[in-house]
């Protein structure tokens, strides 16, 4: 059986913001076809990792390679062509607020040189149907609820047919019912388009639904990496405590995580 192609490889990643060290020699790989969740407490640098991978932030040290090519050695034009193979669903949605939903979804297509209006319209309508938002084409982002904005952001990312999708906290700020809907939607879309995905979340229900490999990030490193069962049975007490606490109290994920952190800080690395 041939090995899957590695799409993302991160080696010895260091990143600090002033005195705050967020990444401390982090190593990580993501292969084609994998659906991976990065778990961890709030403020541990999960979103920073995504932004470094897509090149929105520069690492202080270490190497990030996309499709086998170290991004530090790439010209901006080359990096942009790799970015077009990726899509990122931002935590805030990052929808263009002066454009309608239709224009938001058409944007990546138009910018990639698609000029056929009928083809653009067909893609936009299909992606909106995927996220159960058919008929919302003429609305502006300000007219949408938080959950609808996340779904439009997801549809916009999918409009460009990315090979790799990065999700930054796709369910944060949503009620449990809407969170479940979004998680199911991401799962269905992964099945439909067979894309590779990397989901940053502290929502365990979302991680269960969308990922078959979990990585637990803490102290600037991946402390545990494996199947969900592997992590629940991890030797590391911090990982087990986090998963146990967040399972018991999923609606207050970060709070539970922080409590867990306080409780197990002495046992870190055990």
């Amino acid at each position: 059986m041939s090995e899957s192609k590695i799409l993302v490889e991160v080696k010895g990643l260091h990143k600090s913001f002033g005195p705050l060290k967020v990444m401390d020699g982090l190593d990580f790989t993501l292969s084609q076809g994998e659906n991976v969740a990065i778990l961890g407490q709030s403020g541990t640098g999960k979103s920073v990792l995504l932004k470094i991978i897509i090149g929105l932030l520069d690492p202080d040290e270490g190497e990030v390679s996309l499709w086998g090519r170290p991004i530090a050695e790439l010209e901006e034009v080359e990096l942009n062509s790799l970015r077009r193979k990726m899509g990122m669903v931002f935590q805030s949605g990052a929808l263009f607020d002066s454009m309608t939903v239709y224009e938001n979804l058409a944007f990546p297509l138009v910018e990639n040189g698609v000029t056929d209006e009928e083809a653009i319209s067909a893609v936009v309508r299909e992606r909106l149907e995927w996220v159960n938002l058919a008929g919302a084409e003429d609305k502006f982002p300000s007219e949408l609820s938080g959950g609808m904005r996340k779904r439009v952001a997801l549809a916009r990312t999918l409009a460009a047919d990315p090979e790799l999708i990065l999700y930054d906290e796709p369910t944060t700020g949503l009620d449990p019912l809407t969170s479940r809907k979004i998680s199911s939607m991401i799962h269905d879309i992964d099945q439909r388009v067979k894309s590779t995905s990397l989901v940053v979340t502290h929502d365990l229900a979302c991680a269960r639904k969308v990922a078959d490999r979990w990585c637990y990030l803490s102290g600037g490193k991946i402390l545990a990496d494996g199947t969900p069962d592997d992590l629940f049975e991890s030797d590391n007490q911090e990982v087990r405590s986090f998963l146990r606490d967040i399972s018991v109290n999923p609606t207050t994920g970060s709070r539970a995580g922080q409590d867990a952190s306080g409780a197990i800080s002495n046992g870190k690395g055990s």
Binding site: K51, I54, G55, L56, E76, L79, N80, S81, L82, R83, R84, M86, G87, M88, F90, S92, A94, L95, F96, D97, F107, P108, E111, A160
Partner: peptide
């Protein structure tokens, strides 16, 4: 502030 500029870059645009 609303990450729309980041979205441009994430789409591979300058």
């Amino acid at each position: 502030v609303t990450e729309q500029v980041d979205a441009y870059r994430a789409f591979g645009l300058d």
